[in-house]
Amino acid sequence: MQPTSLCESIKRSAFLDVYRGTAVLLMIIFHFCWDLRNFGFVEFSIYDPFWVYFRSVILTLFLSAVGWSTYLVFTKKANPSFWKRDLKLFIAAIAISLATYLAMPNQWIYFGILHFIFIASLINRPIAKYPIFSATIGATIIVAYHATDWLLFPNAFSTITQYVAIPERTLDIVFPFPWIGVVLIGPLLGYLHLHKLPTPNNIIIVMLSFMGRYALPIYLLHQLVLFALVGSVKMVLNLAY
């Protein structure tokens, strides 16, 4: 979900674009199913293991691409500038918060994936040029999160909501752990030159590459289209019956 400007100064990797585009496609499928559920076309719980793991796959692809892309920028330029990229991401995150607050004030997004990527990028950037060190820290965080209770803070969210005027329910939230670990592992993928893997030339790859190249605008606009589409179909069916 990174802005296109992140890779403007370097030769783009077709494989990385497809990698990120796959995350975009899965995200669209996830949100389309959510819309179908929201308008009563299907019934399922988003807390079912399938949907929990589905979301985890999407986050893993997006967030590993963050660290991966940052490493590639450092390999091409000694002192790269990220301010344009950061500004676009910051504005996009604020726009998501504002739009969801106006649409659903009881569930607005105050720390979703865009907010997390913005913060995680700042954390990852100083060590992204040291991929093995970065990945070691990332892997340690992930293992510690799943194998121990050191990084579990069960009362943190409820405590924060007592002192900050934010709703207890939100449409999207990405907790720091273990996901910062995934971002920190990302540079290792660049160090291993996975971005140089060949990609076949067919319509599916072209589509995924396009989606990966323009992940941020697609993220910002896709749910508006999907929600309006499913809502319109529901309205037509209600009128017909």
Rank of each mutant, 00 (worst) to 15 (best):
S81V: 15
D17V: 05
N106L: 13
A14K: 11
W150E: 03
L216C: 06
V143L: 14
M207R: 07
L102M: 15
P154K: 01
L72P: 02
L224G: 12
W108A: 01
S9H: 08
N79W: 05
C7S: 08
V225Y: 12
T140D: 03
A99Y: 13
Y130F: 10
Y214W: 15
S69N: 04
G138T: 07
V236W: 11
L89W: 08
K234L: 11
R125D: 06
H193D: 12
L151Y: 05
I29Q: 04
Y71A: 00
F54Q: 05
A139D: 08
L171F: 14
L36G: 06
L184N: 02
D17Y: 07
P131G: 00
L89K: 01
P198A: 15
V52F: 11
N238W: 13
S158F: 07
I204E: 05
V66R: 00
P187V: 08
F39D: 02
G21N: 13
L189K: 02
A228V: 01
V183L: 08
W34D: 01
L25Q: 10
I166P: 08
G40Q: 10
Q2V: 09
F50E: 12
A228F: 03
S64R: 01
L237P: 05
F116A: 07
F90P: 07
L216I: 11
Q2A: 09
V183W: 00
A120K: 04
V225T: 12
H115S: 05
H31M: 07
I137D: 05
L98N: 06
F227G: 11
F90E: 09
S97A: 13
R169H: 11
N124D: 02
I141T: 09
